[in-house]
Every structure is written in structure tokens, then in C-alpha cells.
């Protein structure tokens, strides 16, 4: 297994945000984590990235326990996190955003090559490489955020609501990008409110409710599940 999360509990002060969640991401998989507002999706991703620490439970990446590590070590091991709301560095140029994504790497020549490759896949970013990220549209910022996350050469990409606030056409574009990334051999843990998009893309999915996994199964299977349809897809 690439990533194994076992009986994870996470608190904010005294409040429980994640309550005994377990799930896995296999090598080469796209796994979707869907659930309503406040279900704990973002908290789970932040805990995997090491910016938040669990109260109890295990997180293993490539067999190693990573629950006590900080983000710089975790990014170096090959987990990259594209946060909710894009969070590009507004006052830095597009190029600098990508360079910051490669902060933990020291191989300058390779960083340059990766940046070139990303400019090939995201031509908008090349056109705007010298402009501040602030000047990009929402969709372009989402691409920059994904590209920035790829600059650390992840084995596992954590995507937190990449379709948030995007037009239907842009959502399709993001789905296409995720498929392409997956084809290059990167595994993806995809968190979404847009369950249809996520479950369509995913090999497997988990439905999260108030911090616990309620259902799991193949992506398409969940998409057609009665309970899921009632709860998330509007009937």
C-alpha cells in the first residue's frame, strides 16, 4: 500500500473533527474522499501532510509511519498537498510559485526541466510566468496550485476540492488534468464536494460523515448507491 490510514482521530482543542477514520490509497490509484461540509476531509489531508497532528491512529506511507513527521520531511518523501481554495502566493510571480513548490529540492537543473514540462502541459502558466499570481483567473490559479504541488515530484498528490468555485467547463478541464497526472504514475487522493466528478474519476471512493467512513467501494458503484445519491447527489 502507498498510503494507509488507520483509526485516525484528530481534534481541534476539545472538538472532534476526525473520529476513527481508516482508508487506503494503493500505488497508481485515484481514491476519492467525499462528504458534506465539516465531514473532516480537509482535516484528514492536513494531518497526512503533517501540518496538523493526530490525537491517535496510524498513518503509513510506503510502510513508514509518518504521523510524527513535519511537512518538509513528508513532502520530501513524496506527498504533495494542493490545498483547499488554491492558496497560490498572490504577490509572487507564477514562476516563483512553481519554484516555491520545489523548495525541498536542491537539484536545480532537474527543477528547471520539470518546470518546462509543466509549462508544456499548462501553456497559460508559461504565458503568465512573469506576472503575479494575483492576476490569474480562478481556474488559472487552480492550475497553478496543482502545478506547484507537482513541482515537488510527488508519488501521492493530495487534492482538496480542486473544482471549488469553477465553471462546469473548468471542472471538466480539472478532471482531464487529474487523469493526465494519474497517467504519469502519480497516485491521487481526491477530496471533493462535487461527488459526481470525483467518483467518476476515482478507482475507489470513501464516503465520510462527521469524521467517520460511512461507505466505501468502487467509484462508479458509490455513484449509483442509493444512500449516496440521497445524501450527496440530490436524490
Amino acid at each position: 500500500m502507498l498510503l494507509e490510514v488507520k483509526d485516525l482521530w484528530v481534534h481541534y482543542g476539545g472538538a472532534e473533527a476526525v473520529r476513527g477514520t481508516s482508508f487506503e490509497v494503493g500505488e497508481g490509484e485515484i481514491v476519492a474522499l467525499v462528504g458534506a461540509n465539516g465531514a473532516g476531509k480537509t482535516t484528514i489531508l492536513r494531518t497526512i501532510s503533517g501540518v496538523k497532528h493526530a490525537t491517535s491512529g496510524e498513518i503509513r506511507f510506503l510502510g513508514q509511519m509518518i504521523g510524527r513527521k513535519g511537512p518538509s520531511e513528508i513532502v520530501s518523501m513524496g506527498i504533495s498537498h494542493c490545498p483547499e481554495g488554491r492558496r497560490v502566493f498572490m504577490m509572487l510571480s507564477v514562476k516563483e510559485n512553481l519554484q516555491v513548490g520545489a523548495h525541498i529540492r536542491k537539484d536545480k537543473a532537474e527543477i528547471k526541466r520539470d518546470m518546462e514540462a509543466l509549462y508544456e502541459s499548462f501553456p497559460v502558466l508559461r504565458e503568465r510566468s512573469k506576472q503575479d499570481a494575483m492576476t490569474l483567473s480562478g481556474g488559472e490559479q487552480q492550475m497553478l496550485a496543482i502545478a506547484r504541488a507537482l513541482m515537488s515530484r510527488p508519488k501521492l498528490l493530495l487534492l482538496d476540492e480542486p473544482s471549488l468555485g469553477l465553471s462546469p467547463i473548468m471542472v471538466q478541464e480539472v478532471a482531464r488534468i487529474i487523469t493526465n497526472i494519474h497517467r504519469t504514475g502519480v497516485s491521487v487522493l481526491l477530496v471533493e464536494q462535487n461527488s459526481v466528478m470525483a467518483l467518476n474519476l476515482a478507482d475507489r471512493g470513501y464516503v465520510l460523515e462527521t469524521g467517520t467512513v460511512k461507505l466505501e467501494g468502487a467509484g462508479k458503484e458509490l455513484l449509483h448507491n442509493e444512500e449516496v445519491r440521497k445524501a450527496f447527489l440530490g436524490g
Binding site: 501540518v51 513532502v75 516563483e96 519554484q99 516555491v100 513548490g101
Partner: peptide, 17 residues
Amino acid sequence: RAMRATAVDPDTAYLQG
């Protein structure tokens, strides 16, 4: 660059290591 990124958004900079 890392300093400037931190000044703009420390939380997201932390995610980059």
C-alpha cells in the same frame, strides 16, 4: 523566495516544506 512566500501565506508555505 521562501521568506516572501511565508510573508504572504505562512500556512501554505508550510505545506511546501
